[in-house]
Each structure stands twice: as structure tokens, then as C-alpha cells.
Write a protein that binds this DNA or RNA. Structure first.
Lengths: 261, 261
DNA sequence: ATGCGCAAATTGACATATCAGTTTGGAAAA
DNA sequence: TTTTCCAAACTGATATGTCAATTTGCGCAT
């Protein structure tokens, strides 16, 4: 896994805010915190055993990555992507991954091409198993991970670090709920990825470009119609916080809530 | 001008760090601070009339955008792009702008197409005038601005906000010094942009894609060869600071340095 | 019962203070 | 003159404390 922002991996010890960043990011991507849900800097600070500042900085980083959104003095919540934005991301993704396919087709070594084909077949197998199996969230996560891995591997063999980074960054937001929907409801055509990689590992970059384009466009229109997202433009942020874990480091007592009985 | 990170422009008052971010960013893009030159958080804090924190946050933002680079306890300087990275950025740019051209060709209104053509002709005229005129830095800035404007306008008429943002963000670094170099030394083919826009405003998206690809690739190999950039891998950062303005808000007194006399 | 409004609690923003590395220039030694 | 080396100044990183804006829920009036 490469690092996302500057994670201090230039041989310096990782700053505090970076650790917070990754922990929070992980929770969001895992779906432990759902879109629209509020985050409390103080609560997280107490839980992580650090001060407000690193948390605040992590918030800002996640905000610039469009994973969080906040109003200056009101609060911070997990960002709710607008349908229009999803469409836009898919367009950007198409551009980047088509380029990635082009370059991969041109630059990958023979050994790498073989590896990519094998990965694609693995993925199709896993998809198929998932398609029948029902709702195994463990398996779903594995599929998700492998799919991500495949696309990133293609980008890697394109021999362009900046392109790879751009693809990775662009997908972050979309990916998890894309899968929550698309993966759950639809079963992909047999050999969906194998056929793609057949072309991408071939010798025609233009063909690879086109194949990748139709690949990433697959199912997008249907996806955009179902808007199962909270879709709230208003700033009612769900203060779902309540059980403060198990007293991790909480100095606060909900003294007034006892009256509510 | 759209906003870059979250600039609180959702009708909230912009945070301090954001103002600092824009002011510093402006200076870098304008070339007032050259690549490799060091920035002092304290000095800027004093000059802007704020504390270290907003400056530090602005630094981190600019760092994540690859405009600055810093070592934890040593200093922060304007980032020096590596040739390999320039190449990568150009590849990403090709992908994004080709997509932009496609969509513009498909979605722009007739009126917008006319406007784009006119802009292209204006730009060519300006380029030509600049080509003969010698080194008029005022004119150079105008050319730079108009060129940027044209490309962003194409992206706008592609009707995809995310794509436009991605292009803008990607170009930031490359653009200005690309022109500081290339524009100065080379004169572009006559009607360079007019010919491009002829195709882009046409009715064939695929052709627009290809035309844009060759357009953005023009001159890149030569660009990569000239390494006029400080190219320092080492961490000698030029401490060009000296005159601390006019005592703007400096609370420090070099009390101990008197002994050094 | 319902709508209105004020005050307490919660939120992020920021200043100040301090810390620990890094750089650097001049003194001391060769 | 040249080299070595050490301490002071400077760097960004972080903790702590305070503040103003916002939210929210309770009480009051209707």
C-alpha cells in the first residue's frame, strides 16, 4: 500500500496527525461511520490519546480529499457525495484508466502481462462465487480489495507514478459505496475482467484504451439512478455519538442525560 | 476562479489558514518565490498578522498539493519538480484534457464553440506578437493567463466539474514554469491553437481527443531535456530571507547576538 | 397541544507557549 | 590559511487553554 498524503515515510517518524488520519480514514472506508454521520474531534482526541490539534489536521486532510465536510464552527461529518459528483468522478476515472490501459499495453513486460491475466481470472472467480453466495461481507471486502488491486496493478505497469496516484486518489471516495450498491445487486458478465485484460495485455494501446473505457462505464447509468444515499443538503448532522466506547479515555460525563430517563 | 481546497466559500467566513494558503500560493505561482527558495512560517505569520498555526496548516495543504516540500524540523521550501515527475504530469494532463476535448466536442453549445474559436485566435495572435516582441514580461503573463483560460474554458464546456478541477489542480505546478521556459525560447506554429479548436469544436469527439493529445504533447521531449531547474536533491535551502520587512510585528529581539558583534 | 425563544452545551478555530531537531557561523585548533 | 567543532538561533511539531459561533433542548407563552 502506498502512502496517501505525505505520511512522513521519508524515513522520519510519522507525525501524530498522520496516524489519526489513517485511523479515521480506515473507519470511513470500512463503513464504520456512514455518510452524513458527525465526527467529534474531542471524542476522537480522547479515544486516540492525543490533543485536538492532530485530529483537526487530520480532518482538514480528509476534507481536502472530499471524504469529510465541515462548517467552520458547527461540526464535521462524513461527506455525502452528490449524484452529479459521482458522474463526474466516473468521467475522470475513465480518462485516467484509459490512459493507464494504453501505457500498460505499451510498457508492461511479458511476465507482468501474465500476472495481470491471472489476477483478472482470480477476480472473476471470486465475483462468481460472491454472486451466488449471497451477502458475505467478508467475501465482499475481499472482492473489493482484489478489484482495487487489479486496477492499481495495471496503473503500476503503465510506468507512471503520477498517473497511478491520480487514479488512486480519485477512486477513494467513490469506491466503497460503489461496491455496496453495484456489487450487491448485479452479477457481472462471465469473464468480465479476463476479457478486459486480454485486450489490455495485447499489443494495441488504442484498443486497450477503448476496452478500458467501456469497462469502467459499465453499469454507471443504472448506478446513478438509484440514489440510496442520505442526500441531505441541509446541515442536520447526525450526532450518533452516544456510547462513548468503554470509557477509553473519556473525561466527560453525560450528567444531564439521566434526567431524560 | 473556482476554489481549490475547501475555501469555506459555501457562504461561511473563510478560515485564516485558507487566506494564508491563497496568499502563499499566489506568490509561488507568480514566481515571486522561486523553486528551492525557503519559506519561514514565523516570518509569514508576522507579515500576515496571524500566529504560526494557520501558516503551518497552509504549508501542509500546499505540501499535499506538491507545491511545497519540507523536512520535519529543518524547513520548508518551494518544491523543485523532478524531470520524471514532469513527464508523469504531462501524461496525466494528456488523459484529462483528451477527455475534456471529447466532452466539449459532444456537449458545447453553438455559441460556446464560437467563443472558443475566437479565444484560440486571440491567443495565437498574442503568441505571435510575443514571439517577435522579445521579452516583455507583462505580455508573457497575459499569454500565460489567456492560455490557461482557453484550456479551462474547454473543460468548462465539457460539463464536468470534477474533470475541470482535476485539470486545474494538475496543471498548477507545471504550467507556469513550462511557459517561463518554452514560451521564451520557442515560437509556436502559426494557428497552433486555432487548428486545435477547429477540431475540438467539430462534431467528432474521437478526433477532438486525438487533436488534444498531440497538442499537449507538443514540445514535451524538449522540455524534459532542459533542466534549468535548481535540481538540488540535497537540502541546501536558500535562506533568502533577510530584511524583516519593516518590523511588521516582530516581537523577537536578537538580544544575545550583541555579544557576537 | 403547539410554536417560540433563550441559554447551556458542544463544536472547530486560533493564540500562546514549549519542545526537539537542524542549520550555521564564528571561534578554536591545526 | 584551512579545517574542525560547538553553541546559539532558527526551524516546524505539538500540547494546552481560550474563544466565538452554532446547535439544541428545555421552559414559557399562546
Amino acid at each position: 500500500m502506498s502512502s496517501h498524503p505525505q505520511d512522513g515515510t521519508t524515513s522520519f517518524s510519522a507525525p501524530l496527525w498522520n496516524k489519526a488520519y489513517f485511523r479515521i480514514r480506515e473507519r470511513i472506508l470500512r463503513g464504520e461511520i456512514s455518510p452524513g454521520e458527525a465526527l467529534s474531534a474531542r471524542r476522537l482526541a480522547a479515544e486516540f490519546g492525543m490533543s485536538l490539534l492532530p485530529i483537526s489536521q487530520a480532518f482538514r486532510q480528509l476534507e481536502s480529499e472530499k471524504l469529510l465536510e465541515s462548517r467552520p464552527r458547527a461540526g464535521t461529518r462524513v461527506r455525502i457525495p452528490q449524484p452529479e459528483e459521482i458522474r463526474g468522478r466516473c468521467i475522470v476515472r475513465e480518462a485516467l484508466e484509459a490512459q493507464s490501459a494504453r501505457l500498460c499495453s505499451a510498457n508492461a513486460t511479458m511476465k507482468e502481462r501474465v500476472e495481470l491475466m491471472r489476477l483478472a481470472e482470480q477476480l472473476d472467480t471470486l465475483y462468481d462465487r460472491f454472486g451466488r453466495g449471497g451477502s458475505d461481507s467478508e467475501l465482499q471486502y475481499a472482492v473489493h480489495t482484489l478489484h482495487f488491486e487489479l486496477h492499481m496493478r495495471i496503473a503500476e505497469y503503465a510506468r507512471c507514478e503520477e498517473l497511478k496516484d491520480a487514479i488512486e486518489k480519485n477512486q477513494v471516495l467513490i469506491y466503497n459505496w460503489f461496491f455496496d450498491l453495484a456489487t450487491n445487486r448485479r452479477t457481472l458478465p462471465a469473464g468480465f475482467h479476463a476479457q478486459l485484460l486480454q485486450v489490455v495485455t495485447g499489443s494495441d494501446p488504442i484498443a486497450a484504451d477503448e476496452a478500458m473505457r467501456s469497462h469502467v462505464q459499465y453499469g454507471v447509468p443504472e448506478l446513478l439512478e438509484q440514489n440510496v444515499l442520505p442526500a441531505s443538503n441541509d446541515w442536520r448532522l447526525r450526532r450518533s455519538q452516544s456510547g462513548d466506547k468503554d470509557g477509553h479515555a473519556s473525561a466527560k460525563k453525560p450528567a444531564s442525560t439521566i434526567a431524560a430517563k
